[in-house]
């Protein structure tokens, strides 16, 4: 466990870890875990950049109300806090200059 990460998991998850990709980088996350929580625990600090100013954002409410944890999965922007970790998720950061959303 990396001691410098802002978040830690208080108990070892019994769920098997599966590989997902976040902006191309592989991550091992607990299967069925809340995606936003799992990304935070994995040390992801910036989930997206806003379409207005490009400001970085990360989960704020964790209950599906604020839309700050939006990530892009299969070309659709979705709330990470409303998704469960599944094997092989391809996640990208909306607003990343290198990503061409929808038009892909």
């Amino acid at each position: 466990m990396n001691p410098v990460l802002p978040f830690l998991e208080i108990e070892a998850s019994s769920a098997p870890r599966v590989e997902v990709r976040f902006d191309g980088a592989p991550l091992l996350l607990p299967l069925g875990a809340n995606l936003a929580a799992a990304l935070l625990a994995a040390g992801i600090e910036r989930f997206r950049n806003t379409p207005v100013s490009g400001a970085p954002r990360a989960p704020f409410c964790m209950m599906g109300a604020c839309f700050d944890c939006l990530v892009e999965i299969d070309g659709v922007q979705r709330q990470a806090c409303m998704i469960e970790v599944a094997e092989g998720l391809q996640i990208t950061r909306p607003g990343s200059p290198e990503v061409r959303h929808v038009a892909s």
């Binding site: 990460l5 802002p6 978040f7 830690l8 998991e9 208080i10 108990e11 998850s13 875990a33 809340n34 929580a37 799992a38 935070l40 625990a41 989960p59 704020f60 409410c61 964790m62 209950m63």
Partner: peptide, 14 residues
């Protein structure tokens, strides 16, 4: 949100 992280995911801020 902090509570939800703890309840659902066992994730805590350091």
């Amino acid at each position: 949100a902090g509570q939800i992280l703890l309840k659902q995911s066992g994730v805590l801020a350091r």
